[in-house]
Amino acid sequence: MAITVDPRHNHLLAALPDAEWQRWLPQLQWIELPLGKVLHESGAQQSHVHFPTTAIVSLLYVMENGASAEIAVVGNEGLVGIALFMGSESTPNRAVVQSAGQGFMLGAQVIKDEFTRAPVLHLLLRYTQALITQMAQTAVCNRHHSLDQQLCRWLLLSLDRLQCNELVMTQELIANMLGVRRESVTESARKLQKLGLIRYSRGRITVLDRPALEKRSCECYAVVKKEYDRLLPAGLPPGPPNFRR
């Protein structure tokens, strides 16, 4: 896999004011994010925040019996580790890579020091508001909508955080994210494939008809996307930074 050498493929890093960008750049560390890598466990102290560029990270709530369900996804639009600047160094959630890729990380003390600076504070708080909206809408969706609709929402949110229309994902992992049985995911995926919306083969899901997938999804996807679009900048600034790993 080619190394992403531009941290500003992460939209939050791309939106930093120039003064903050120049301070952060020497301290950003490139990191490979393989499938299944745990970035932090529930209740554990967080040493870094992570800014995915080509990876997707799932935030999971883990119950006492070991069962888990996804409450949010983070990709190139944001960061993993908001607890560090929200008054805590740990969180009750587990963060695990659900789609392999790359990203950058920044030390905990660095982000806490920078959060006292107004431009960064406003940017990170807007991202936190968007992430909380996603968490709340996920809870509503899991309670009130069908598994078919939940799967469509999950696929769309994941694709928004990638630069392609293909996901490398097993049905078992999807079931773990949605908190359902693997057989139920298999049945829903077959329906979508029969309708020509996706192609699923050997752990790879390719979206063939995104507009149709959006129509089949519930309103939860549109609510979350609208909030991210409203609160956060999109796209990359012109020209690459002078960054070396």
Rank of each mutant, 00 (worst) to 15 (best):
T54D: 02
K226C: 09
D18K: 12
L84T: 02
A222N: 07
Q102A: 05
S201K: 14
C141N: 13
P7W: 00
L195I: 04
G107Q: 11
K225W: 07
V5C: 12
Q134C: 04
K194V: 04
L123P: 04
D229W: 00
H48M: 07
G36I: 04
S201L: 13
M105R: 15
T4I: 11
L28I: 00
Q98D: 11
D18M: 07
A14W: 00
P237N: 03
S58Y: 02
H122N: 13
P240A: 10
V62M: 01
L236Q: 15
L167S: 10
G66C: 03
A108Q: 06
L59I: 09
T116W: 10
S58L: 04
K226L: 12
L59W: 01
D113Y: 06
L156R: 05
T133I: 10
L35R: 03
L213K: 04
S158K: 08
F243I: 03
A108M: 04
H50L: 01
A108P: 08
L232C: 12
E166L: 08
E77N: 10
R94T: 08
L131F: 07
G203H: 00
E32K: 03
T4G: 12
A95G: 06
V207P: 04
E219A: 14
I31V: 15
M177I: 01
R8F: 07
V223I: 15
T4V: 14
L28A: 03
N142W: 05
L192F: 06
A108L: 05
I111Y: 03
S188V: 15
L60C: 06
V80K: 05
T116C: 10
T54C: 02
Y127D: 01
D209L: 07
V5E: 13
L13V: 07
L192Q: 09
W21F: 13
T170H: 07
M63I: 01
